[in-house]
Design a protein around this nucleic acid. Structure first.
Lengths: 212, 212, 212, 212
DNA sequence: TATGAATGAGGGTTCATTCAT
DNA sequence: GATGAATGAACCCTCATTCAT
């Protein structure tokens, strides 16, 4: 009798996670607008008013999803890329963690992120996530650069980070369409593109537009 | 009475373009779902039933927008990247054309595209656009490789092209959010990341994951 | 063929009146909150979206009712109380018209007005109506006073008019609850209370509080 | 165990008063429908089920508010207007008490009363309150009349009482909008209108409609 | 006693879409 | 060809009310 029976009345924290799980699932399947609160509630096995009581408006719910999933992903990446490793290894581990996460949480991040980009009300939340991500990546690069005595402007770093993120997302899509591919191998591929390019940059190589 | 009247009722083709102009404007300002057929019709200076008569359903209308804008963009790129130039110059010109287009048509492409990525019904159309782009880029790379007597597996090429496309799209978003940035400069930035990395790859360099 | 058949597609102006008729009826039967837009639409023999298209929000609809009924009432009163009559006769005619209106439009005025008094969003509209009424009555009294060479401060007039309006409204409620009562008789009753009191005031009589 | 515990949990009567206080506050601020049981419970610092356990349904709760506030007001008035005083002084004291009460309990009666008039379910309760009020006022008047050897029909008395109540309420509103006015002065003003008119009536004066 | 958890029911509002003129 | 009139279908959200602890 020490194991509690499967209660119907669950404590708030548990129910909130259930709701978020359902919401992430439905939002990613249908898209923000097409998702209905009814479906989310039903999928969470609870009535609609509870969703409103605990997580608020549809928009607020979406932001909560974004927040939870974003945080999980950042933790996965940050946990993988120990700051005392050399830059390329950190990047490699980070990428591997990222692709692993995206592969495992197809619903969670990739789709929420894609949804969010299209809708204005989430600009703020997204900007925050993006900023943290860019910061992490730019941090890695900057660290490596300084180790070699080089320095690059903030905008430069941001742009590189942006490009890496975009390329990574794109490969994540590609991975999603090629289930036979293994995520580690995809990460390696990404490293090949990213690191060789970024590595060149780090070493001072630079491409210049031809004279017209 | 025998001379044709000065058309107040414009010919169908013209009307359709007006509608598409209005639709592109409204879709990008509001997003696909938040855009209303009422607003589009009003903005086009025409009644709603006409929109349905000429361009069909809201989804069909959006696809038509996507199609027109996508075609325009592909033409802009294709026209810029003459096939007889060396690969890096073709890529550079293509990128410059792309970023130039995105910069000039903030409404048009960048935003529609961002919308479309989030919604399932447009997956097909989008996949098509992206496929065409990947094909073009892969073609460029392959061309360059063969010119140097090298050859790379199809999958490799596709992956690299995918990554480049993703990085480029990501920078396009970045450009859309930084109106003060010059589009040619953004293209140069992209080249720096892309070409140095891809160029290394093409010449046989390769990064390998560390032994764990 | 000259008499048009009973069309189903009626012009906007007609439909708006039908909707207002239905709204007045339902609002007075159920009260503002308990009234449902569904019932109003059904009673008007039309679908809900038309109500929203023509008359807007539930609140706006209620205000429109208030406005129409209030205007009708003011016109009835103004038309009855010709400005060239002596003050008591003007007041009498005004009251008779007022109670006549209330008796004939139980739904319209008495109830809407009763509803409106309880709800904050309509305070402005109501205050406006009451202000116009107070102004009219104060005007009558002032006119009469000046005809007798007397003059009273503006505040005094306003207070008297306010009291008269309140007493009248209260008797209108009473009338609404006593359908067997004749409205002219109620008007006479009101005159007895109002005029004798107000008349005394006008002639300089005044009551003073006893020393405590 | 035989000694009653030092109540932390307040005795029922006290809790009920707290709830009524909160309910009166919320009902008058929001109106009956817009008021939510949640807000009332929260404002009372107690959980919702307790409200239901102690005071029943929302409607029953409102009736309880109406009842308590109405009773308080009647007591204030009755306590002020000692039955052995002359009629005008009784009326004067009653009015002063009424305005004082309304001024001091802006939340309390006047607002609840206004709410109640718009909603059917409270017709019974309201009729009762009104009857007591009319009875008190009519009692004053009747007393005075009989002292002068005159007698007036019940309906007449009721109508006069009604008009006085309406005028008084209206001046209470006016007072609310003119905070610089003192309530005793407003009561005096009301007396001027009411008593002079009613006083005339009591002494046999009467206004007659003109022949048409 | 006291409350957090839970819900059935319903209301306002909007929209894509289509007739009938 | 062109449009005002019209609607079915949902969706978001709230609330009074009640269990189960």
């Amino acid at each position: 009798m020490s194991t509690p029976p499967a209660f119907k009345r669950l404590p708030r924290a548990v129910r909130e996670q259930q709701m978020l799980d359902a919401a992430v699932k439905v939002f990613s399947r249908r898209g923000f607008h097409a998702a209905s609160m009814d479906e989310i509630a039903e999928d969470a096995g609870i009535s609609k008013p509870m969703v409103y009581a605990y997580l608020g408006t549809k928009e607020e719910l979406f932001v909560a999803c974004l927040h939870r999933e974003g945080t999980r992903m950042m933790q996965a990446i940050a946990g993988a890329a120990a700051p005392d490793l050399p830059a390329d290894e950190r990047l490699w581990r980070g990428l591997r963690a990222f692709f692993g996460f995206v592969g495992a949480h197809r619903d969670g991040w990739a789709v929420l992120y894609r949804q969010a980009r299209g809708e204005q009300p989430f600009a703020a939340e997204l900007a925050g996530m993006r900023a943290r991500m860019v910061e992490v990546i730019a941090g890695m690069l900057d660290h490596a650069l300084r180790a070699e005595g080089r320095e690059v402007g903030e905008t430069e770093l941001e742009v590189v980070a942006y490009a890496l993120v975009g390329a990574t997302e794109s490969l994540a899509d590609w991975l999603a369409d090629h289930p036979e591919e293994d995520s580690a191998r995809t990460a390696t591929r990404m490293m090949n593109v990213a690191w060789l390019g970024a590595g060149q940059l780090l070493h001072g190589a630079s491409w210049r537009p031809p004279a017209e």
